[in-house]
């Protein structure tokens, strides 16, 4: 197996909310997994299950309540120096593209800043920018003179991908980066990401709701539900032999083009939660996060 470059170790993040911080949300609950060089991991789960929070913890945008993140064996949760060096190698692309750009800067200025902040030399700068833009299917001439508000949601998402391409990073956290793209563009972007991972050894934590694309692209799959990692393992094992009821339900609800949904199946989130609680209650032999086969673990109780 190839080397582990990042280790997520019993990660916990609680948020206090409301007046006087009375309530607590366990956004990420005791989550552990490794990221290997060149690996594509898809992180799939309910909305609000903690996927973005994990991404932000890795990107040091949040501090964990407990647990550790090791990058090349260094604990980045305690070693808070060298943030800049870290960001040269670990980058993120976030879900709301409008929030990721300074609205006052034109796109060319945004790319200039990347070179200024993260890349040693300006050599072939223009060429690199143009290549990256073409890779994500955009016309440099058109895009570089625009302000972010003059672009559509999907165009901004592609710019974010181009930015990551230029930077040549070790770990890319890609949070819903393809959510606004149509089928044909999605495939192109994914093929591109996969080829970069192969060639340059970049690892990607690919947060997505699209299970078919997760299957297409990733080596490893992680399934989250309400802050917990409920199933993890080799992608083909998870898809062919799902054990946790949440994973089973997700795989069952993949829209199958050409086949109509059964109107009687409501997919009420509340019903699903009940099913999961029952599963935890009834699995009295197995407890905790347990291996069911090689490279396949399942959460049997909280």
């Amino acid at each position: 197996m190839s080397e582990t470059i990042m280790k997520i170790d019993h990660l916990q993040k609680d948020f206090s909310i409301g007046l006087m911080s009375k309530k607590k949300v366990h956004a990420v609950n005791d989550v552990s997994f490794d990221i290997k060089k060149g690996e594509i991991i898809s992180l799939i789960g309910e909305s609000g299950s903690g996927k973005t929070t994990i991404g932000k913890l890795i990107l040091r945008l949040l501090r964990p309540s407990d647990g550790h993140i090791y990058y090349n064996d260094k604990d980045i949760t305690t070693d808070y120096k060298n943030k800049r060096d870290y960001y040269k190698k670990v980058q993120g692309i976030f879900q709301d593209p409008f929030a990721s750009f300074n609205p006052l800067f034109k796109i060319d200025r945004i790319f200039d800043m990347i070179f200024k902040n993260f890349i040693e030399s300006d050599k072939n700068k223009k060429e690199k920018i143009n290549d990256a833009l073409k890779c994500v299917g955009m016309n440099p001439e058109f895009i570089l003179r625009k302000y972010p508000h003059q672009l559509s949601g999907g165009q901004l998402q592609r710019l974010l991908i181009a930015r990551a391409l230029i930077m040549d990073v070790d770990v890319l956290v890609a949070d819903e980066l393809i959510s606004m793209l149509d089928a044909s563009t999605r495939i192109d972007v994914l093929n591109l990401l996969a080829s970069i991972c192969k060639e340059k050894g970049m690892a990607v934590l690919f947060v997505t709701h699209d299970l078919s694309l997760g299957y297409y692209i990733s080596d490893t799959t992680l399934i989250m539900h309400r802050g917990n990692l409920v199933e993890k393992g080799k992608t083909s094992l998870i898809y062919n032999n799902p054990v946790h009821p949440y994973t089973q339900m997700l795989l069952k609800s993949i829209p199958d083009i050409g086949k109509r949904w059964d109107k009687n199946e409501k997919f009420l989130p509340e019903d699903i939660n009940k099913k999961i609680d029952d599963f935890y209650k009834n699995s009295d032999i197995k407890k905790g996060f347990i291996e069911v086969e090689d490279d396949h673990k399942v959460l049997f109780s909280l």
Binding site: G137, A183, I187, N191, A194, S212, Y216
Partner: peptide
Amino acid sequence: KALISSLPKNDVQYKDEQLSGIDGTPPN
């Protein structure tokens, strides 16, 4: 037609077979 044919099939993995999109980009 091109859009429909680039929809992901549920049984293909990148390492085995590469799907393709539509070549080129939309015009300015």
